[in-house]
Every structure is written in C-alpha cells, then in structure tokens.
Design a protein around this nucleic acid. Structure first.
Lengths: 352, 352
DNA sequence: CTGAAAGCGCTTACAG
DNA sequence: CTGAAAGCGCTTACAG
C-alpha cells in the first residue's frame, strides 16, 4: 500500500505559503516571485504531489470524463472505431465511460441520463455506420457531442464517416491505372455499398468506360454471393478483366469461383475488395487481396480529436466530415503475377 | 441544451427540509418520516434529480472510476479480454480509464501515476497472456488490483487466466470420445502451448494412449507450420487418425495439407484447433473446425466482477484463478461427415 | 426523526 | 506578488 496522498495543503504547510499560491504556481498561473515559485515546485516534486483529479473536477465543473455511446459494440467495425477513439482520449488524459446501447432505444435513454449524472465533458456517439443516420442526442447535453462512423440526423451536428464515394473512385481508378477496361462490380444493396458504386461509376465514366455486364450485381455480404455472382458473369458470357467487390468476403468468393473456372488472378481478372479485414494478420508484402481500407480506427480518432479540440475551445468544423480511405495493394491486382502461385494453405494463412 | 442541473439544495428548498435529510432519503438511509420521505422522493423525481457524481466522489473519497492498464491493446486477444471487462464495469456504473502501455515499462509507470491522481477505485491489469508473468504493481495502489489474462508475479495477487491444461485435456478427451486412438499434436513452444500439451498427455495417458509419432511437434503459430508438420507426419509414415493443433491457424494448415494429400477430414483424420478465432463470423451450425474457445472475454468479465466484488467489500479469492474453456464442435470432428463436402468458397466463408 | 456544520481538495474572484 | 474566503455539490458524524 502506498502512503496517503499528498495534498495542496501539505505543500503549503511545508513551504509556508497559502494554498492559493501553491495552486497558482502548479497551474503556471498568476504572478508569483521566482523564489517562492521555485520552492513550491521543488517541494511538490519532492513530495511527489499529484493533484486530486476529483477535487479539480468539482471545483472546475469539468469531469475530465468523456461519455461514449456505442450503438452496438459487438459489431466488429464499431469496436475498431471505438479503439481509435479511446486511444486519443487516453492521450489527452480523459477517462471514458463506454456504454453499449445494444441497439436498444431504451438503453440509449438510460445511458444518456447516466452520462448527464457524471457531468461528462463531452459525448462521442459511435453508431452502426453510414447506412442509418443516428437520431441526434446533442440537445440532451450542455457539452459537445460528436458522432462517429454513422452521421447524425441533424445536419449541423459534427459527424465523421467513411468517404464511400471516394472508396469507389479509388477502386475504379486503381483498376483503370492497372490497364483494366472491363470492370465488373459485385456488391450489396446497403447505403454505403451504393455510394461506393456511385464512386466506381464516376471513375469509369471519366475514363469513358462502363460497368462490365451493364450493371452492378447486388446480393449479400458473403463469399457465397461473391461466388454465385461470379458464376453468373461467367455463364452469361460477360467479358471482364476485373471485379470490384463490395467487401473482402465477396472478393474471396469471387476469387474461389474464378480459380475453380480456371481463370487466373490477376492475369485474367484483377480483384479489389473493401474492408481490409485481415489487416491485423497480413503483412503488407504478402497480401493476397488488393483492398480498400476505410480507416475506421482513424474515423474514431478524428472524431475524438475534434471533441478534444472543442473542449479546449478551439474552432471545430460542423456537419458531415469524411475520412479518406486507403488503397492496400495486394497480389490480386499485382503487375508481376509471378509471385502468385502459392499453395492453398498460404492463401488461408494470409486471410485469417 | 438542457437546463442547468438540479441539485440537492434545490430539492431541499422546494420540500422545505435540510439538504442532509434529502441526502439521507435519496440514499435510502436513516430514519425519516414516511411523509417527508414521500415528498422528497416525489420532488426529486419530478425535478429529474440526478446526484452529481463528481461531488459524490469527492465527498465519499471514491471516484467510481476503474483504471485499466493493458499491456498491449493491439494484441487482438488482449482486446477481447478488455471488451469483456469493460462491459462488466459499465454494468456496475463504473467509468474506466484505459491506458495502453504498449509493452513499455516507462509508460506503465507513467500510467500508474495517472491512475493514482485520478484516485481510481480499483485497477485491472490485462497483460499479454499466461506466457510471461506480469510484475506486480499492487503495492503501488491503496485500492484492489486484479490481473487478467496473464498472472501477476506475486502469487498472492488475484489473477484470472485461461486453464490451458484443461484445454489440452478437453481436446484429447473429445477426440478419444470420438473413437480416435492415434492422436498427433502440432503446436508451438510458448508457455500456454506447453500447458495444453500437458493436458493432452494427461487425457491420453488416462486412456492408455500416447501421442502419435511419439512426441508433440513444435513450430510457429502459423498455417505454414501446420502444413509442414502434417507433411512431415505423412512422410515419416506416422499412423494418425486425429491431430490436436495448438491454434486454429495451425489447424488450417494441417487441414489444407491433408486435403492436398487426399486424406479426408474428418473421416480419415479428425482435427481440433484452439482459439475460436472465427467466432465473430461463423454460425455454430456451419463451423468447419472443431476448436477450443478459451473464453477470453469471460476472463476479462470474471476479473472485472471480482474487482467489483472487492469494491463492495465482498469476500474475494486470492491467487491464481482459471477460467474454463469450451469445446466448440465443428465438422472437423463430426460423426456425420456427409455435410462435409463443401466448396472452397464455403470453407473461406466459414473461416473469415 | 431532523438540522447545522464541517469536510472532501481543489479553484477562483476579491482584497490588499 | 500573496492570502483569506467562498464555493463546487455532495456526505457524514454530531447534536438535539
């Protein structure tokens, strides 16, 4: 057990000054003679003084705690956003109170009340993603509220989301730059997916191209759909030399089906996915799949940083902010396909 | 913006009693006439009173904040433990201050000081796992400290870890119960892996068996090693009808190599892995791989619950506590292998 | 059963 | 340049 904590009063007593003076010096405020300042600083250091954060909070009316409402932590993407945010808050000495609303409006209300009772300095809402706008809760708080991942229903709220249109454009441009001209598109119908499709079409149109087969193919977020759609493309006799897939799992299904049909990746067909799902495990050198990383951790980090700025009274933007996506190059669009003949187990290793 | 917060004093003024009385009633303490009690309760409810948690903290000397030091959050397994712990704390209305030590002793020291300044009510340490004991920091705090995932160097500290020996026993027993008698073992050399090997040997010995090929094969935690070791077993002509693999990725390598060699899983060779790495995505019905889940989230939850108990003054155990692992049945040990002929893309889907 | 008072450990005008 | 005092909003002995 450590000894009882040292207080301002202890230091004041030792140095022979008032608590106010000690407080001022320690906060680097006010005019204080160099001599007493030095003495106070030295004593504080010697006694290993650390101000009681609770007392500071009460006196200042700031808790140094940030409330975080996550609509559903079990959603893996939400938890990545959360992790990005938490590291920023920790870096700014802000504690976090994280509540998982489990997609329940009742819980959401309960947690809002709890955060109010804690007098949090700010609130971060991490919703389920860009698909469904999150009902604004900003008017429930006297402190700044920032939304991450999904946007708020109130357009004047500050929200940070992925830039899905840019994702589509990035994928399309990468394939075009690799010399592909017949680009198919297998994806899903969800909001973000639609925006990515828009982006793809923008890039294609600029290059005077259109989607191979005439239209995007939409289905579920799974490998089965990727395989089925690819089979359909093959059966219909659509000519294509690339596929942009709405996510990595669809891309894998496409990959497997092409493999089974004797089409080589990337020689015959290049593939770009989305999510960078295997980022934790794959090394950049050995990636199978070229993919787009929407930088979800950075979405959380940017939102958290904006909240921290707001607490400091700095200017912050309002409205919807988007975070840039990154292209993560892999062998599925490589120009040198020699490296590409790997055994199944290597594929598995890369993907897990 | 919400109106300024209601305080004890407001309620006292409205009801016409002292703040002390209001405080007592609201905490359900002391003898107070039924009438004033009712009036106070009604008023508090009507004014939507919520006690300022900061003021309570200062007055009570308890912050209602738990400090969490994670040795390395980027370690995926640590973050699972963390998630399990956080949900328990949130359920007990405890805020958390999470610091990522990034395996740096300097940061660890800095974060300990910050937690002290916050006057946290308790500390949870999430270390890198059972392999390396974590240098005890309990004597740096006047509040309870609990260790999760890895154990503390001080045997009297309360630590929650996986029960690796039980994992090995569980895997071995499951294979034996499935009628397998020639069980090979491909794993790594790390501490937890060794304990799992011990458990496997215990189960085998009880059944009068020994490891096929004479000894466990140890290498790296990757599919390549699983494939290489399996190839070696085949080349050496070792007879085996099952493999217990140290983790799921090794198991996949083994699976792929067996497949390539024309050995059917599970008919010819059953496989059990460890980690339940794909839990987020796989449905129980469609799992490819039988695996052992060390229940890491529960390790975090149990540790957090113990800390909460300690704060309440309840009896808590001391020393090393282990958390039960679970067998997650999959097709790689299924008795009805009919369901087992699936296309590659389904395999991929299951695994991702 | 109830109230006045001190205290938690800081911060912050206000005097001097 | 420095100190005395009030205050943040609760809790908690201590009287009555």
């Amino acid at each position: 057990m450590s000894p009882p904590a040292v207080t301002l009063r202890d230091i004041a007593a030792v140095v022979g000054v008032s608590e106010s003076t000690v407080s001022r010096v320690l906060r680097g405020e006010g005019k204080v003679s160099a001599q007493t300042r030095a003495k106070i600083l030295e004593t504080a250091d010697r006694l290993d003084f650390r101000p009681n954060a609770l007392a500071q909070s009460l006196a200042r009316g700031q808790s140094q705690i940030i409330g975080i409402i996550v609509e559903d932590v079990s959603e893996i993407f939400s938890s990545i956003v959360l992790r990005g945010a938490e590291s920023v808050f920790a870096g700014s000495d802000l504690a976090t109170l994280v509540y998982d609303a489990q997609s329940s409006p009742d819980k959401r209300g309960e947690f809002i009340r709890k955060l109010q009772a804690r007098h949090v300095d700010g609130v971060l809402v991490i919703s389920r993603g860009p698909a469904d706008p999150y009902p604004s809760i900003s008017d429930r708080f006297r402190v700044p509220v920032v939304y991450a991942f999904g946007r708020s229903t109130d357009a004047s709220d500050l929200s940070f989301t992925p830039d899905d249109v840019a994702v589509g454009r990035l994928a399309g441009q990468h394939l075009i730059d690799s010399g592909r001209t017949r680009i198919a598109h297998i994806t899903a119908t969800e909001y973000g997916a639609q925006r990515r499709t828009e982006g793809l079409i923008e890039a294609l149109t600029e290059a005077g191209l259109e989607i191979a087969g005439g239209a995007p193919m939409t289905g579920g977020w799974n490998a089965r759909w990727g395989a089925a759609a690819t089979a359909e493309l093959l059966e219909r006799g659509v000519e294509f030399d690339a596929i942009f897939c709405g996510n990595d799992v669809i891309a894998l299904g496409a990959f497997a089906r092409l493999h089974a049909a004797g089409r080589r990746v990337p020689e015959d067909v290049a593939i770009v996915g989305h999510d960078h799902f295997s980022r934790e495990r794959a090394t950049e050198e050995s990636r199978l799949l070229t993919t787009i990383d929407p930088n979800r951790a950075e979405i959380g980090a940017r939102a958290a940083a904006a909240l921290v700025d707001a607490l400091k009274g700095a200017e912050t933007p309002t409205g919807l902010q988007t975070v840039e996506a990154s292209l993560v190059p892999g062998m599925s669009t490589a120009s040198d396909p020699d490296e590409f003949d790997r055994a199944t187990y290597e594929l598995l290793e890369l993907l897990l």
